[in-house]
Amino acid sequence: MIPNVLTIAGTDPTGGAGIQADLKAFSANGAYGMSVVTAVVAQNTRGVGSIVAMEPGFVAEQIAAVFEDVRVDAVKIGMVANAGIADAITQSLDKYAQCPVVLDPVMVAKSGDHLLNQDDVDAIRERLVPRATLITPNLPEASVLLGREVEMGSLAEMRESLNDLRALGAKWVLLKGGHLSGAESTDILTGGDEGDTTVELTAPRVDTINDHGTGCTLSAAIAALLPQHGYEEAVRRAKDYLTHALRHADELDVGAGHGPVHHFHALWNNAPLQLQGAQR
């Protein structure tokens, strides 16, 4: 059975991050994608311009429209935008969702600018994180969630932060090491029913500036794969998918800044479209 996976997130008009990236990652990993918009974002490969958040009640109506009609096998949450939307999502999930929930806590822009105020962060930490079954923070996001600095270049510091992140309430934590230095990128997955699983996942660091939407893409791929595999296997497969999407990112020519990863690298490279001679 093909899984139906819902993303609850903001938009990216250039298609590299947010809902647009999530839907691509769902499709590339064998899932049917659905979406609920939390915010409309004016952004491109060079940065975020402005954000218009949806009314919390309208976000709740969108979620209800999906769950009252469609079987939902997993949910991915990205940009929440504000505390009111965090509450609306939490209440909706409590009412409807009996499936895995992957939360990518989008709190810090690539530039380092914080996207949320303290009340919004508190709502995500106190309400959404405990409702999620898996959270996928990078190191800056982990710092915001924990309210203390997690050293950017330290794998040891990552390991020491895991218990504190687990204590926030999610069953699983994937702490991403993309901000580490060195030739390899190491993520750490910890959790499980007994909280006794900890796995370090390492991949070669890909030399490309086209890394826009990597966090969105990884968490969306995990959500697509969870109905098909267990947590550890889904995360392994999603990380491998993202690594290859980064390796092929330079085949695209999108924007003047940090371009997107190549979500459909496997499909487009193995089955190129035969356009020559096609009738119009």
Rank of each mutant, 00 (worst) to 15 (best):
P3C: 04
V5K: 00
V5D: 02
L6A: 05
A9H: 00
D12C: 06
P13G: 10
P13R: 11
T14P: 00
T14A: 13
G15S: 13
G15N: 11
A21K: 07
K24C: 07
A25M: 09
F26V: 02
A28L: 09
N29G: 06
G30K: 06
A31Y: 08
Y32K: 01
M34W: 02
V37F: 05
T38M: 07
T38E: 01
A39W: 01
V40N: 06
Q43D: 02
N44Y: 06
G47P: 10
V48E: 03
I51M: 13
V52M: 13
V52F: 13
A53Y: 05
E55I: 12
G57H: 06
A60V: 03
A64K: 14
A65N: 09
V66W: 11
V66M: 11
F67D: 04
V70F: 15
R71Y: 08
A74W: 01
A74T: 02
V75A: 00
I77K: 02
G78C: 06
M79L: 15
A81D: 12
A81R: 05
A81G: 02
N82L: 03
N82Y: 10
N82F: 03
A83Y: 07
D87I: 10
A88P: 06
T90D: 12
Q91A: 15
L93P: 02
K95F: 01
K95C: 01
C99H: 01
V102W: 00
M107F: 11
V108E: 07
G112Q: 10
G112D: 08
H114A: 14
H114T: 14
L116D: 01
L116N: 05
L116V: 10
N117S: 08
V121M: 09
V121A: 03
A123I: 12
I124E: 03
R125A: 10
R127E: 06
R131W: 03
P137H: 05
P140A: 05
V144T: 11
L146F: 07
L146G: 04
E149L: 12
V150S: 08
V150H: 04
E151I: 12
S154D: 14
R159E: 15
E160H: 13
E160I: 00
L162G: 10
G169D: 10
W172M: 03
L175S: 03
H179P: 09
H179R: 06
L180M: 04
G182Q: 08
A183L: 11
E184N: 12
E184T: 12
S185V: 15
E194T: 12
D196H: 06
E200F: 07
T202R: 14
I209G: 14
D211A: 14
T217G: 08
L218T: 11
L218H: 04
A221E: 09
A223N: 02
E233L: 04
Y241P: 01
T243F: 04
H244Q: 15
H248S: 14
G255T: 05
P260N: 13
P260G: 07
P260Y: 09
H262E: 06
H263Q: 10
F264H: 13
F264S: 11
F264R: 06
A271F: 14
P272G: 01
Q274P: 01
Q274C: 11
A278E: 13
Q279I: 13
